[in-house]
């Protein structure tokens, strides 16, 4: 099974029908394991129980960026390889990515309230995620602004790629603009500074949320393919009526 085989939407639909139940089951099991481990994790000596918010905040923040990466790949697929499923993948990913980004923002803000004393602090990392959220919403607005899906796909692909190139620049400028947040602690030179009792539940939750994204994404892609079939059949019906 290669990428070319998947170019046939019917074959793609058959494949998703076969693997979706397994993916959903695996996601559910991993999520339960991750939640149990998160509940069992010890309290942080500084932050107390609020450190438990990390187990959903960090996976969501990681997915917020990962989904944009997936959409950029799909955008390349649309513009360069003209893969027929690429724009379906890009369109289906946008709302899911926006939802994860929203969760990252809200959980971050709920974490910040007891730690910093305010719900919102204009610090570098929160602000970059907020800009990412705005870009997701803009992308969804672009998809919704054009009726013809293939024309919308090309416009959205260009915007996605420009966004992917711009995100590091935005991140850098926002960092320069202000720094208050604690420095990155998981992926850092010289190994993670996080204790194992936190790291393992965090990794399990990260994998579980990634699986959740894959499951939701495949299901949303299936919906999008069906939506396009409905659309083309409706067009056929309309042209037959007028003929």
């Amino acid at each position: 099974m290669t990428l070319i085989d998947l170019a046939n939407p019917t074959r793609f639909l058959q494949l998703t029908a076969r693997i979706l139940p397994w993916l959903a089951a695996a996601t559910a099991i991993l999520l339960l394991v991750g939640l149990y481990q998160a509940a069992m994790a010890p309290d942080d000596y500084q932050q107390g129980a609020t450190v438990k918010i990390m187990f959903i905040h960090v996976p969501n923040a990681w997915l917020a960026m990962f989904v944009w990466g997936v959409m950029s790949l799909a955008a390349l697929g649309t513009l360069v390889w003209r893969h027929p499923l690429a724009d379906v993948a890009a369109k289906a990913a946008a709302p899911i990515g926006a939802a994860f980004t929203f969760l990252a923002l809200v959980t971050g803000s709920l974490w910040g309230r007891p730690m910093w004393g305010t719900y919102w602090e204009w610090d570098a990392r929160l602000t970059s995620v907020l800009i990412l959220f705005l870009m997701y919403l803009g992308l969804i607005a672009l998809w919704r602004a054009v009726e013809d899906p293939s024309r919308a796909a090309r416009a959205a692909a260009v915007l996605t790629l420009v966004g992917a190139l711009n995100l590091p620049i935005i991140k850098f400028s926002v960092d320069w603009w202000n720094t208050l947040h604690q420095p990155a602690s998981v992926l850092r030179m010289g190994g993670p500074s996080l204790d194992r009792s936190f790291l393992i539940p965090l990794l399990v939750m990260a994998v579980a949320f990634s699986l959740l994204f894959v499951t939701l994404h495949l299901a949303a892609m299936r919906n999008e393919i069906l939506r396009r079939r409905v659309r083309s059949l409706q067009m056929m019906q309309a042209s037959r009526r007028s003929a």
Binding site: T50, K52, I53, I56, N60, L103, V106, T107, W111, R113
Partner: peptide, 9 residues
């Protein structure tokens, strides 16, 4: 705050 974040997620 912990419960709200988990409930919201």
């Amino acid at each position: 705050f912990v419960v709200t974040s988990y409930a919201l997620a």
